[in-house]
Simulated assay, not measured.
Amino acid sequence: MAKNDVRNSIKLTSVDELFTTEENRADNQREKVVDIPLLEISDFPSHPFKVKADEAMLEMADSVTQYGVLVPGLVRPKVDGGYEMVAGHRRKKASELAGKETMPCIIRELDDDAATIIMVDSNLQRESILPSEKAFAYRMKLEAMKRQGQRTDLTSRPVVEKSVSADILGENTGESGRQIQRYIRLTGLIPSILQMVDDNQIAFRPAVELSYLSENEQQDLYNTIQSEDCTPSLSQAQRIKKFSQEGRLNIDVIYTILTEEKPNQKEKFHIQRERVDRFFPKNFTEKQKEELVIQLLESWYKKRQWEQQER
């Protein structure tokens, strides 16, 4: 081998490496908080948690304006450049509303499954979580656990049978494996019915039963709910599911079941939706509308009582 080749093959230690300490080398390995431009951070794919510019978000934006982001987000590098948000989507939205150009983040190398589990776990700590958010979050985490090699004995009958993996997931969420399986069933609902579950118009357990219907059957059900202004009880949902499994469900059967008088059912007081909707803010849920109507009626009733006493 020529002298030049031998010389070139020898790797010399740099001056910086000679005088660096073990503490400095360890410090270089530690994760650091870095201010990253918001334009370089994309959302996590299929992020199941909704980030809305609601009152709580506006309050968070005010806090960011005054104090900045106090808890750094967590991102992972993307192959094609930039970063992908793992934990901190709400902080990112608040930073945008506050007019910030950057956000403090920790950069961490994560594979898809590890990132999914961290994303779900970090968001499940929130106080208010919609049923649809839990449904898709639990499904994503359970699928990630399966790819990581853990047992995921998902079955087609989660209300009855037990899943070991769902029990493991439940240990960190405070819910039973059976309840987690019920939530995952909600991902089988069409968006319009799932929205009714989020709005408390359809109860959780009936919604689980309705998730077994085909997409077309669910659409017929939704149309009937809207036209008749009624929602199924648990027993009605179970009967609708049974008719579906037997191949005998059609829109006439759905109508018959939904419009039958329920046990101990009192006569309903109906007001056409188009007559009152114009009085409410567009973002009001059905529950908020109901509460406002009750408040106004109570005020009206108290006023009448006072007027009668004055006579």
Rank of each mutant, 00 (worst) to 15 (best):
V79L: 14
K289R: 14
L213F: 00
S165G: 15
E298Y: 06
K78T: 10
E96V: 13
D111K: 02
N4E: 15
P77K: 07
S63P: 07
A61C: 03
E291P: 10
M119T: 09
F269L: 11
A203M: 07
V164P: 01
N283Y: 10
A203K: 06
L12W: 11
I107T: 06
A114W: 00
T231E: 09
V33G: 03
D62S: 15
R91Y: 04
I107A: 07
P191C: 05
S214M: 05
N200L: 13
R126V: 10
M57E: 08
S63W: 08
S192R: 11
D167A: 09
I254L: 06
Q309F: 05
W300K: 15
V120R: 04
E143R: 11
L210C: 01
A61F: 02
Q66D: 15
M85K: 03
E217M: 04
E171S: 13
E127S: 13
R147T: 08
D153T: 03
E215R: 14
F204P: 03
N216Q: 14
S9A: 14
Q308R: 15
Y67A: 10
V159H: 09
R151H: 12
K268I: 09
L194R: 00
E127A: 15
S132T: 02
Q179A: 11
R151T: 15
L38K: 02
I271S: 07
G73Q: 06
M196Y: 03
L142K: 08
E286I: 14
P158D: 03
V34C: 06
K303M: 10
V64A: 02
C105A: 12
G174S: 02
G82F: 04
E84S: 08
Y183M: 00
Q218P: 02
F279D: 08
R157C: 09
L169I: 02
T116W: 05
A87H: 09
T231G: 08
P206D: 00
D252C: 06
I168S: 10
E267T: 15
Q236G: 05
V86P: 01
D80S: 13
E286W: 15
V34F: 05
T116S: 07
R126P: 02
K52V: 15
C230G: 05
S46G: 12
G99E: 07
I117T: 06
I117V: 12
Y212A: 06
K11T: 13
L292T: 13
D198I: 00
P37H: 01
L297H: 06
K268E: 13
P37Q: 05
L18F: 12
V6F: 12
S299M: 15
P206E: 01
G88E: 07
Q295C: 11
R7I: 14
I294C: 06
Q265K: 04
T65I: 10
M196D: 09
Y183L: 00
M103W: 10
R91F: 01
A166Q: 14
E101V: 12
L210P: 00
E267P: 04
V33Y: 00
T224R: 05
E215D: 11
K266L: 12
P37Y: 05
K92H: 04
P232Y: 01
R311M: 12
N172E: 15
S46I: 10
L130P: 02
S233N: 07
C105F: 03
G81T: 05
L142D: 11
D113S: 08
L38F: 04
R76M: 10
V164K: 12
K303T: 14
T21W: 01
